[in-house]
Design a protein around this nucleic acid. Sequence first.
DNA 1: TTGTATGCGTTATCAC
DNA 2: GTGATAACGCATACAA
Lengths: 338, 338
Amino acid sequence: MEKKITIYDLAKELNVSPGTISRSLNNHPSISQKTKDRVVFKANEMGYKVNKFAVNLRTQKSNAIGVIVPKLNSNFMSTLLAGVEKVVNEAGYNLIISQSLESVEKEIMNAKTLYNSGVDALLVSLAFNSESSEHFMPYIKSKIPLIFMDRVFNLPNCPTIVIDNFQAGYDATNHLIQQGCKNILIVTGNLKRNVYSNRLLGYKGALEDNNIVFNEVNIIETSMEPQSAKDVVDYIKSMNVPIDGLFVLSDSFAAHCMQKLKTEGFSIPNDIKVIGFNNDPISELVSPTLSTIEYPGYSMGLLAGESIINQIKGNINLQETNSISLRHKLIVRESSKK
Amino acid sequence: MEKKITIYDLAKELNVSPGTISRSLNNHPSISQKTKDRVVFKANEMGYKVNKFAVNLRTQKSNAIGVIVPKLNSNFMSTLLAGVEKVVNEAGYNLIISQSLESVEKEIMNAKTLYNSGVDALLVSLAFNSESSEHFMPYIKSKIPLIFMDRVFNLPNCPTIVIDNFQAGYDATNHLIQQGCKNILIVTGNLKRNVYSNRLLGYKGALEDNNIVFNEVNIIETSMEPQSAKDVVDYIKSMNVPIDGLFVLSDSFAAHCMQKLKTEGFSIPNDIKVIGFNNDPISELVSPTLSTIEYPGYSMGLLAGESIINQIKGNINLQETNSISLRHKLIVRESSKK
DNA sequence: TTGTATGCGTTATCAC
DNA sequence: GTGATAACGCATACAA
């Protein structure tokens, strides 16, 4: 551990060439088993460690995968990353994680930094207000695998890993309708993001299939920050036709809205039935417990990880370069009880 | 972006030596401003990018900081990491984040992997059941800065960044006593971890100062997993002297306990007053809202980041190599109202 | 099956 | 102020 020992030291010690050492350590087929054994044994004995820096320079690979997510501190994101980490670690890769904190500027900076530090692939979930894909062009030009998950761009040759947000939005809305709701308000984040716009389409679809006329005023687009809950409730109170159903595209924001509604005297689910999205742990802890859409975060992570590894290794399965869509699940709890 | 351009290309183009290019780009004092300007201009024009791999090999530094945390998906941890990231990014470092998922085995693996990939420093918050510090020895022997935060070991020359868990435990307990509690149960995680054992000492201290006799049966050590809430409530119901105060060393577990208590017919805060720990967002959303101890996660992250950078740069401020302790704050909400 | 030699792109130590 | 030149530690094409 004290002094760095190199393949040259091993070579000298064993009276073979550095090349042989290198090949033995990498289990190269042209080396005899006997030599390999000797080398590996000696390497352990002397406490040899490869110098990753040299390997990286020589191979122009870093064995590192860059990740840009909006926020680490969301249950969904971290669950997803746990899945990614498991897969890529098993394949010998490290994860360099950075947060955009929902800012395009930081997303651009992170993309540049990670590019410069030579990541072998980049995994991205977009910031709230990211509109241009300009900052990902260096990756595409350099043919560095680029994978989007959840909040995605559709770029050529860039796999996306998503759930069927349309169907999920449909299912949630349909559930509220089945429970008797006639006038459902949908509370969404930035509609430029695929996740929200598709859920909205699902919402509209469910209304239509149930012969309910869609009304533009039943959409409210917010930052989903806790303090915006007040705006939502104010909006609900201001409406002519009373709202009897609330579809909030995030559990934690739904929890804030419910709290505010309760303090304003609304009874849930009697006056208003509520459904959220994500199956965040919070949804089981609020009262009434929150109905929601479960989102297979961990599985998405595993798939994202596998997709990345395949891309890096050049196993370009054409079916995989397209969009992978995972199953979601409606979870009914107290907040939408009849 | 198409073909990699190197300092040799720039040198040829400008009729100077590669050395001059390198020095110019690094703003070396011995180069004339005029030359520097020419070089920098040309570099931009030709789209030159340093090759980090070469720099790393040459300097034997990676500009990367390894991080091992138990779980990413805890509000406290991710907030903390956000702080770390901000500071180290501004200093030009990347964060390689890995999760131990509360398993010593994975912690050991991660430590090894990060060591091999040549991180310039390592930041650790220990797994639940980590007892030996053997796996950090390579860092110490190689004099790679090693910093612990929150769940820490006390190793020579390894700064620790913590809050005063004793005082926090004292304050929480004292608050419950002030609210009239006479028989307080403390619900803790693994007592091998400094964070929990020190809070327990604070609990005992507060009892003593209020002339309440400490009773061993008033400690319950659990995994803090949601499903253990049942055990806690069963334990409460089984006790001879009724519990009137509950000090749970994690907000999310406190929320689970409260929920279970309520379904078992306990009224909070009337029958039992509850206080948690962390000021997790969840604490404002449960009902009754949860009193807690606020924990300056973001500030801890900033400090941890600064401490790391200082260590790497060799600014070894001796005062800094010791433990840094941050201020916590008691937040009183409904769950401990008189 | 093994050895030799070169290059990966920098930085740093000498010179001049 | 600038130019040679030698590492950094490894992988690999080419020889043997």
